[in-house]
């Protein structure tokens, strides 16, 4: 559906996007991850037709997307990172205006406004000036404004920044409904848990390039296969990691021993037996799979929120 091939963008001397290449299949939620300054927003701007690339191409259903291509723009719903709404007027007036930009008029426009307000849970306060809205409600309306013309591709640039958990859940619910209706979502965020909840496929950007692109499970497999095991022992017990088996990395904090184990079946019993032999009473054992955050750290050497 969406093909991004070799996209480049510079602002004067600053290279924002060196080389972005990825493709998005229809009907999925595609996550675009990267820290601040990675070039995500520039790529999103080029895909949404608000910015022209210096090189490379973006095609949507075979049509090239540029700032002047009206055809593909009709298939795209763009939710900017900022709350791009007119705060002085009501939600209905905002939606009426944004709908008219896509040629919606009359009863059809009214119906679409009603549907989008309902989807985002804002129907009961639709006539109020949005300056009265909470940040979360404004974020929801920001999304609603991009859905009026029933786009095939919905681009969401960090749509949950600064929202309360209730509004975040409402946004996720709305996005899941859209995906269930076959819409394609391109989603950028800082929050790994959002990607893990929503996305089926992920591209990781850093320093203007896509450094990894895979399914969510595939991305996680890029990390050397280890499992983090946390073993909580009885208070007062003292364990010298040198006495424990294997060449695992052990850390000891308070009454918890943490170690990285490659094969749980093979190595974990050996560790537990060694602790038992030392007379240490084990209170709990927890294991954790590699997280996307760890993958990101492994690939880029920095945290997503850097």
């Amino acid at each position: 559906m969406l093909e991004v091939v070799g996209v480049k963008k510079s602002y004067g001397e600053t290279v924002a996007v060196k080389n972005a290449t990825f493709s998005v299949e229809p009907g999925i939620c595609y996550g675009l991850l990267g820290p601040n300054g990675a070039g995500k927003t520039s790529v999103i701007s080029i895909i949404s037709g608000t910015l022209d690339a210096d090189g490379g191409t973006v095609t949507l259903d075979g049509e090239v997307v540029t700032t002047r291509s009206a055809g593909p723009k009709r298939k795209i719903g763009y939710v900017p990172q900022e709350i791009a709404l007119f705060s002085e007027i009501s939600a209905i007036d905002n939606l009426r205006f944004f709908g008219s930009l896509y040629g919606l008029i009359g009863q059809h426009l009214s119906n679409r406004i009603e549907a989008c307000l309902e989807l985002t849970g804002l129907s009961d306060r639709a006539k109020e000036p949005i300056s009265n809205y909470s940040g979360g409600m404004q974020r929801r309306l920001n999304i609603a404004a991009a859905l009026l013309h029933e786009p095939d591709l919905i681009i969401l640039d960090e749509p949950t920044v600064g929202v309360d958990p209730q509004s975040r859940n409402a946004i996720f619910d709305a996005l899941e409904i859209l995906r269930s209706k076959g819409k394609t979502l391109l989603y950028t965020t800082h929050y790994m848990e959002e990607v893990e909840r929503l996305c089926q496929r992920v591209a990781i950007m850093d320093h203007g390039s896509v450094i990894a692109e895979h399914s969510l499970a595939g991305i996680k497999r890029m990390l050397p296969q280890t499992n983090e095991v946390q073993i909580e022992v009885e208070s007062g017990a003292v364990v010298d990691p040198a006495t424990l088996p294997g060449s695992f990395s052990y850390t000891w904090m308070d009454s918890t021993l943490t170690c990285e184990i490659t094969d749980l079946n093979r190595d974990l019993p050996a560790v537990l037996n060694a602790l038992n032999d030392l007379g240490v009473r084990i209170l709990s054992v927890r294991t954790r799979e590699s997280s996307l955050e760890q993958v990101f750290l492994h690939l880029t050497g920095r945290s997503l929120r850097d």
Partner: peptide
């Protein structure tokens, strides 16, 4: 600054 122009630019309006 609020991103409204960008949103307008993403629409088919010239």
């Amino acid at each position: 600054r609020m991103g409204l122009w960008k949103r307008l630019r993403s629409s088919p309006v010239s």
